[in-house]
Simulated scan of single mutants.
Amino acid sequence: MPPFATPSDLPGIVRVFPLEGAVLFPRAVLPLNIFEPRYLAMTRDAMASDQLIGIIQPKAAREAAPPDLFATGGLGRITSFSETGDGRFLIALTGLIRFHLVGELAVTTPYRQVKVDYQPFLADWGEPPALPPTQRVAVEDALRLYLNAQDLSADWDAVRGADDESLIHTLATVCPFDPLERQALLEAPDLPRRAETLTTLMAFAGGLPAGAAGPSRLQ
Rank of each mutant, 00 (worst) to 15 (best):
W125I: 09
L90D: 11
G126Q: 12
P129G: 05
F121A: 09
P67W: 08
L93V: 07
Y111S: 00
G126R: 07
A65H: 06
E127Y: 06
L75W: 13
E83K: 14
D86R: 00
D124H: 10
F121T: 01
G85L: 09
A106E: 14
T108A: 11
D68W: 00
L90V: 08
R77K: 14
P132W: 01
G85F: 08
G85C: 00
I78E: 06
V107T: 14
E140C: 01
T84P: 00
V137E: 05
T109R: 15
G76P: 00
L131Y: 06
V137T: 03
T108D: 12
T134Q: 10
A142G: 01
G87W: 09
Y146N: 10
G85H: 00
L105H: 10
L75D: 09
N148L: 09
G126T: 03
A71L: 02
P67E: 06
L96V: 12
Q119A: 15
D68M: 02
V137L: 11
A65N: 03
E83D: 03
L90W: 02
G87R: 09
Q113W: 08
L145N: 04
V114K: 07
E104G: 08
A71S: 06
P66V: 03
D141H: 02
G85I: 04
D151C: 13
L143T: 00
F70H: 15
L105F: 07
A106Y: 06
E83S: 12
T134V: 10
Q119G: 10
A92Q: 15
I91Y: 01
L101H: 00
G103C: 11
Q119F: 12
G126D: 09
Y118N: 06
P120G: 05
R98K: 14
G74R: 13
G73C: 14
R88K: 14
H100Q: 10
Q113E: 14
F70K: 03
A123G: 06
D68V: 02
I91H: 03
G76L: 01
Q113D: 09
T72M: 07
D151Q: 15
Y118S: 01
A106D: 15
I91Q: 02
F89Y: 15
L105A: 06
P128I: 13
E83A: 02
L122K: 11
V137K: 05
A92G: 10
E127K: 02
A65W: 04
H100E: 02
Q135I: 04
Q150I: 09
I91G: 01
L147M: 03
Q119M: 14
Y111R: 04
P66N: 12
G95Y: 13
G87T: 04
A106P: 08
A149I: 11
G73Q: 01
Q119K: 14
F99Q: 09
